[in-house]
Design a protein around this nucleic acid. Structure first.
Lengths: 135, 135
DNA sequence: TGAACATATTCTAATATCGGTATATGATGC
DNA sequence: GCATCATATACCGATATTAGAATATGTTCA
């Protein structure tokens, strides 16, 4: 078979650079499409309005943006809460990297102590014993 | 023209469900490929070893996983720091949703104070310094 | 050396996705 | 109604990406 479904998924939606730029721009406050296109052009001079509208559609479909719609203009804004799944996902690992820094501290402290009480240690550097953690 | 470059980009790497599952599984601790495939199968019974290896390659290329390689086995683990760009990106918006909650708190506090001493003008210390790791 | 195992790569086909251009929809004002 | 502005959609071509099957690479052990 082929590619599995990816759209209508927040993770995929933010996978695109252009859409991230849109979100960042809208993060500064509501914009209508014309204003949004104009601001995006400062980074990507040749971006087109239809393209932006298409990206907005994707973002809308995953509820990352919402639009208020007065007269002929449509004002888009970010719905930050839709990013929560991403945040939750990364948070799990953020904890890991903090733990590693803590462990690094431990190592450094250990080295310090070693420097004071030196002992012959041979280090088989590729074959360190590993703790496989949970099953 | 066509699609813009997406691969070799952490955001894209986590856009795939299967790769996220791999990361979550590896988050519990180092696994060799066989063990990883086996655990993934509990969620996706028909997943194949070659497919997992291919996803691991993508993850490796963006440095989201690293592998230690002893004998015929390769032990993969998560390199959580590679997720930082994603975390930074979401953090910006997380702040937005917290601000909204904070503002709600302020409103509620304001109402409370108003109830106690109606003329009170307190310094609104809403701008607490946020730690958000250095780049 | 060769069998058995663990993992990676190559090849292929299906399809999703992006960007461009042209056009459609919808609202406003004359 | 008609012109105009603001935005969305349809269509197209190019390419990326995924999954599957077969195969290659590399390691250990007999």
């Amino acid at each position: 078979m082929a590619r599995s479904a990816t759209t209508s998924d927040v993770f995929n939606a933010i996978g695109d650079r252009c859409r991230r730029d849109i979100l960042i721009t809208l993060g500064a406050g509501e914009h209508d499409v014309t204003a949004l296109v104009e601001r995006l052009r400062s980074a990507q001079p040749q971006i087109s309005q239809p393209l932006v509208s298409k990206h907005l559609k994707v973002l809308r479909e995953v509820d990352l943006v919402r639009c208020r719609h007065t007269g002929k203009r449509r004002f888009y804004r970010v719905n930050a809460e839709a990013l929560r799944p991403v945040h939750v996902f990364t948070a799990r690992f953020e904890q890991m990297w903090n733990e590693r820094l803590d462990r690094l501290d431990d190592v450094l402290l250990g080295m310090q102590e070693h420097a004071e009480h030196p002992a012959g240690t041979h280090s088989p550097d590729t074959n360190t014993a590993n703790e496989s953690g949970a099953s």
